[in-house]
Design a protein around this nucleic acid. Structure first.
Lengths: 117, 117
DNA sequence: GTCATTACTTACATGTTTGTTCGTGCCTTA
DNA sequence: TAAGGCACGAACAAACATGTAAGTAATGAC
């Protein structure tokens, strides 16, 4: 995000996978926590600390980074209220909701793959 | 694969995502090249060198690693023929074929996401 | 006997992701 | 006055993913 990447093969190859809608999509939901967060959000609005408690093993830093990334990618909506103590709520966007049925199928495939190996 | 991982938070957290069928599934198709390889294989049988030519920007090492990983995960089948020079062919398994319709949906979602951001 | 072909493998280098620890600004409660 | 909750941010470190360059074994062509 912050640091500019070099013009290396690593970066040029990254372009290949960004150009493909499929690999691009997988990137958006990839990483260690995003899908678990989406799962937990479901149809609810949750605060930063609520998510933090749910995923006590995840570092605050990761939670923060993933939420920010998903917000930029239009997967979640962040609403901050100027109260004391501050309140910030996160919820899925319509775009993320459209993923749900696809993810259900992927989940089933995952179970099947796991059984067959 | 070869080196044993330590009993770190990193490793313990990995268990969390392996326990979930969904994140587990995404891991199996994650990484930079696997989906592109599956895409290219389609219904064909392709040799190592044919894949290498198709993905000239991908290093041989990566091709080899990804193919091996996908074979272990039951996504592709490797057939080696004791000829000279050696001939090795790769093709998708039934399990991988079941992914195709799901991936099509993901691809569509990816295009939509890309347009909306 | 030298060389090319094929499908890899190994050692090393670079780049990214994830985790640890500490700090911040605002206000409330004790 | 002190302490604590909330929602983060920054600096650093560990682990992993990816890329580079070179080498291997078997064989057949020349």
């Amino acid at each position: 995000m912050t640091t500019r990447k070099k013009n290396s093969t690593y970066t040029r190859n990254e372009q290949c996978i960004i150009n493909c809608d499929l690999t691009y999509a997988v990137q958006k939901i990839g990483g260690r926590w995003k899908l678990l967060l989406l799962d937990k959000l479901g149809d609810k609005k949750l605060r930063f600390n609520e998510l933090k408690k749910e995923f006590s093993y995840m570092s605050e830093r990761m939670l923060s980074l993933q939420l920010k990334s998903m917000e930029q990618d239009g997967l979640i909506k962040r609403s901050a209220y100027a109260e004391t103590p501050p309140r910030v709520e996160y919820e899925m966007t319509e775009l993320a909701r459209e993923l749900a049925p696809i993810l259900d199928q992927l989940r089933n495939w995952g179970r099947k793959q796991r059984e067959s190996v």
